[in-house]
Design a protein around this nucleic acid. Structure first.
Lengths: 344, 344
DNA sequence: TTGTAAGCGTTATCAT
DNA sequence: ATGATAACGCTTACAA
């Protein structure tokens, strides 16, 4: 780290003096926002080079009333689905020369509230919000009034905010239909937190498929996880230590991480997948296809969703009023090894 | 998104007028930076509440010459190791009420250069830099002169910048020693890009262990990957389609992702791990323990490293000159299923 | 204890 | 085509 005293950065004034022109001329050159004679332009550019001048962004933001920065609020990057959304966001932002402020909430209301307040104070162009709790923090209402906001993946009701997500219900229906097509009758569902829209959508999809196949959805037990691996492990234990005969032969998991937990439980207890137990997940994170057995799951185009949300946000900021209120992406069932024929 | 016209945010002046005091009094209250009589303080607070006032950060930054924001440059979040570092950074930053600007480079020189330039212009308090190429962009020198910078994981030579990383050489030596202890003699190394310090350190560690066990390190073939899964897959193919008898029975992979690639190749080609082929990785990403077989690998405390780097950066910004030049973390071998006894 | 006013480094209007 | 100059919203001497 520089142990020298902070070398005072040069300002436009310095550049102007150095080039023998006025500050406005320098500004015109920097922003290409006014007519400048070729020779003077060259002089300015040379001075910029020489002094290593770079504009002071806070000053610029103050004047322009625009910061060229968006916020991204996301539960946790350890979940590759969220990581992929974040990648999509940063890539799209980069194409527009916009900075991304990253906030991770660990899916807790406290941290969601904290970051929402924090971003509220910033002059941001907008915020991409992935809720991990399903509960809008107080400040979110204000945030949404002050800035452009787009929800991604998780939809919060009661707020007039555009949404980018996947057709969760449909995806879950396909997953369950696939399990049923393999002859399973005793199926356990491992859902996400009840407060989340995605959880309920996926549950609804599972039930739809169950009903369509002539089952009574209410007879299928629903265990509640929290979308983390550990909770899948715990749920698997609960279901698989039930009285013989009522144990499920298949698990429909509301996300891949929990499905990984189920598979880990099976491995630790000598159960074969898919020999003894079949498993489907949701998300299709990169490692789903790598696992042995590879995981049958539902693909969500995470990076695309992040990119799209960013584009929507920036389009809105740019004044385009034709911003869609909703952008629902199709999911795609990925048939792999973790689902096999039912055994009795 | 708000379809109404942007509700002009109130300024300190508004609050002052509303509370019947001067702007300085408001500033004193907001920042708790001056003496204010209790009743007037209350009036100000009430006005703030009523108007929903929040300070204009760009203006504040302009005046204070400090932005309370750090930059984070990272190759890609799809690699859970980097994602974990990023989590550590955001958590530490949150504790200091500092924002994090996220930049992903996809490990390309172009994007590293782009983001370095971009951040150079911002008035940041500092930058946490994870190189994906090993090549410092032009602007990095300037960046480091202007801002506090800390390298994490990957060390770039020739720049006087503090470093937070793991003892890569030692970790690799342990990994290779473990493989050798299992009786393997034909071992293939899958290294990272030659330009990276981590690649060379790990390679050096492998060679050290080889030599210590009485092998000639030069007889061990080194295949070069790029730390991505696919390159591990390709390298495995290359090594395992070699003439019978010269095929390796074990792979030492410079990171987990490439080890996953090797395992995927084996799965696709009917080779058992660890029955036919043993594999060790490096990083211990969350999914390493989940894989079947679980991956024997070297643990790096990624989140801790991110946290520590952030603390160092902020300590430096706060003027504490006692910032260490280097912070090397111990690694820990995680013995799991993917390494077994050598077979002939 | 409170208020006045001078910047912070830009951008953009308006003369020239 | 160029250059003064007045904001932008805040912090902070300094004055009262």
């Amino acid at each position: 780290m520089s142990s020298t005293t902070p070398p005072r950065r040069s300002t436009m004034k310095d550049v102007a003096r150095h080039a023998g022109v006025s500050v406005s001329t320098v500004s015109y050159v920097i922003n290409d926002s006014g007519p400048v004679a070729p020779d003077r332009r060259a002089r300015v550019l040379a001075a910029v080079q020489e002094l290593g001048y770079a504009p002071n962004e806070p000053a610029r933001s103050l004047k322009r009333r625009r910061v060229a920065t968006i916020g991204l609020i996301v539960p946790d990057l350890g979940n590759q689905f969220f990581a992929a959304v974040a990648e999509g966001v940063t890539e799209a932002a980069m194409e527009h020369d916009v900075l991304v402020v990253l906030c991770t909430t660990d899916a807790t209301q406290e941290r969601e509230a904290y970051h929402t307040r924090l971003l509220r104070g910033q002059r941001l162009d907008g915020v991409i919000y992935l809720s991990g709790t399903g509960v809008p923090p107080r400040a979110l209402q204000e945030l949404a009034e002050l800035h452009a906001v787009v929800f991604v993946d998780e939809r919060l009701v009661g707020l007039d905010v555009p949404f980018v997500g996947a057709d969760n219900r449909r995806g879950a229906r396909d997953a369950m239909a696939h399990v049923l097509a393999n002859g399973h009758t005793r199926i356990a569902v491992i859902g996400g937190p009840p407060a989340l829209w995605t959880s309920e959508q996926r549950l609804a999809g599972y039930r739809e498929a169950l009903a369509a196949a002539g089952h009574d959805p209410d007879e299928t037990p629903v265990l509640r996880g929290d979308y983390r691996q550990e909770s899948g492990y715990v749920a698997a234990r609960e279901a698989l230590t039930a009285p013989e005969g009522s144990r499920p032969t298949a698990f429909a998991c509301a996300n891949d991480l929990m499905a990984f937990g189920v598979i880990a439980y099976c491995r630790d207890h000598g159960l074969r997948v898919p020999g003894d137990v079949s498993v489907v997940g949701f998300d299709d994170v990169p490692l789903a296809s790598l696992l042995v057995p590879s995981l049958t799951t539902v693909r969500q185009p995470a990076a695309d969703m992040g990119r799209r949300a960013t584009e929507m946000l920036l389009a809105h900021v740019a004044g385009k009023e034709s911003v869609a209120a909703e952008d629902l992406w199709a999911t795609e069932l990925q048939v792999r090894e973790s689902v096999g024929p039912a055994v009795q």
